[in-house]
Amino acid sequence: MSILVIAEHDNQNLKPVTLNTVAAAAAIGGDIDVLVAGKGCQAVADAAKQIAGVKKVLLADNDAYEHQLAENISLIVAEVGKNYSHILAPATTNGKNFLPRVAAFLDVAQISDVIKVESESVFARPVYAGNAIATVESLDAIKVLTVRGTAFDPVAAEGGSAEIEALSSDQDAGISRFVGEEIAKSERPELTAARVIISGGRGMQNGENFAMLEKVADKLGAAMGASRAAVDAGFVPNDMQVGQTGKIVAPELYIAVGISGAIQHLAGMKDSKVIVAINKDEEAPIFQVADYGLVADLFDAIPKLEELL
């Protein structure tokens, strides 16, 4: 078996979710190579070669890959990946964007959002917003998988000593162009990697009130999340949405404030180790998954919580 893992990065830093994806590759077993495609991304390759268990790092450094445009990245991944038995990418918005194109080029299926490796060709994945778990067997010669990071403990970022091989590939499809980006800057930990998350829902009433949650987050070193309703209402930006169609998180502690607990929200957070719900409606479905439920008005409870921490 030879497995190609596509590194997630921003040309400077290797994103930790790559380590979870390598863990999924290790569960399959076999030689693991990592592809770093980007521009001016030598530092990423230098980080990738230290990942425990990685045999070789392939570095494709070219203008065409600077912004991870799916049209270009899918070409190089298909070109390199066709010699492997498995191609894995994290199930991030980036992985979800280019990897299905790779599968189509190779005329194979993509198994999305793998949460468990049963064997080299059998994988488990959630369907119906996590209300069912499907076990599927791939019949393809090349298995193309996106990996749900929270389902695999990361391998060590250090300890490996892979060689770096530079590729001269410059696959520019020439049909798309990067225009711009608004990336939320935050001192807080990244949602999908945070140990503690505090999320607000429609019950927060407006964006300003999220400042209350921020104070709690500061004390706990927590990341901030939100329900779809809070994002749709414009209280907070889209990158904070947790759920079936937002981010999937599994922190040690998840605190849901003014969130009712719709199945689509639960799909994104019910694998958290400890769940706290603060809601004034004692019938709210969120209490069915909460380890500790507090029936209270959040406008009383949150300031008090902050004070006691």
Binding site: H67, L69, T92, T93, N94, I175, S176, R177, F178, V179, G180, E181, E182, I183, A184, T192, P237, N238, D239, K247
Partner: peptide, 12 residues
Amino acid sequence: EIDGGLQTVSLN
């Protein structure tokens, strides 16, 4: 809508 925020692309 991407993980970090928003990205704009121009497509032929």
